[in-house]
């Protein structure tokens, strides 16, 4: 898959809450390149004096009809805050598509549990939509601190069943995603997870305990995004590998999470 370095135009900016912004990017001149769920984009940050490196942002959704790429930005530092200040009509330089995405089934029918926490829910929207298109059943289990931190619930509900947890109990089951009662009463053909590492490790343990195939999307701090600088490595069964190139999606059996705390 050829990687591209292209200027996209901000079609719209949707502020989801105080610290999350949805950027809808488009290319007026030509169709966006093919991108798969779980892949990511390295976005150049302009207009931030202290930001040098690109910011890796997972692909939230690809709207083929509108030729739009959606990036959900969590504003955590100067770089992401600069992205949050973009307005419609601005240009964004993107390096894409990067990394390996989630496994896409060749046959329909399976029940897929997609577990996301915080901004980690972002790539699951596109993945769930692709699963639905392929005749599979995506079931979303989305967790956050509070109701206001749960993102894009309406968009998720258009694709499939949505269960939620919040740490303060303001929406859905109270507690962490791995404490949701559905995990005890239901079984799934596959699990995908993205979010804080402790959450993903807990999901991986659940998958292991129930004998369910599981993929996790990592967000190790990275520089090049191309497998050149070797900064974003994860310790795997094959040693240190680049999350940007070998991942960001890994089958949990390749990771060493289950052998350690």
């Amino acid at each position: 898959m050829t990687k591209q370095l292209i200027d996209l135009t901000v079609a719209a900016v949707e502020r989801l809450n105080a610290t999350h912004v949805l950027l809808r990017l488009t290319d007026a001149a030509r169709p966006l390149p093919a991108m798969w769920p779980g892949q990511f984009v390295e976005v150049r940050v302009d207009h931030s004096a202290t930001t040098l490196l690109r910011r890796p942002i997972s692909i939230n959704f690809v709207d083929q009809e509108r030729n739009e790429l959606w990036l959900l930005v969590h504003e955590v530092g100067n770089g992401t805050r600069a992205l949050g200040r973009l307005v419609a009509g601005d240009t964004v330089n993107c390096l894409l598509p990067l990394g390996n995405g989630f496994t896409l089934p060749t046959t329909g029918g399976g029940r897929y549990l997609l577990v996301g926490g915080g901004v980690g829910t972002a790539p699951l929207l596109y993945y769930g939509d692709e699963l639905r298109r392929r005749g599979c059943e995506p079931i979303f289990l989305l967790g956050a601190r509070t109701k206001g931190d749960l993102l894009q619930l309406d968009a998720f509900k258009r694709i499939g069943r949505v269960e939620t947890t919040t740490e303060d109990g303001s929406m859905g089951a109270k507690g962490f995603v791995t404490q949701h009662p559905m995990l005890a009463s239901e079984r799934f053909d596959a699990i995908a997870t993205c979010g804080p590492k402790p959450m993903m490790v807990a999901v991986a343990r659940y998958a292991e305990a129930t004998g369910t195939p599981c993929e996790a999307s990592l967000e190790n701090r990275m520089a090049c995004g191309l497998g050149a600088c070797l900064c974003c490595v994860e310790d795997t069964t094959e040693g240190n590998v680049c999350v940007c190139k070998e991942g960001p999606v890994f089958n949990i059996k390749r990771l060493k999470w289950l052998n350690s705390k």
């Binding site: 202290t50 930001t51 040098l52 770089g79 701090r221 520089a223 600088c229 900064c231 974003c232 490595v233």
Partner: peptide, 18 residues
């Protein structure tokens, strides 16, 4: 190489300990 984390962005630069 060294364990993760190996990189940190600084003002006008970056640190690495690959």
């Amino acid at each position: 190489g060294n364990p993760y984390p190996r990189m940190y962005e600084t003002a006008g630069g970056m640190l690495n300990c690959v």
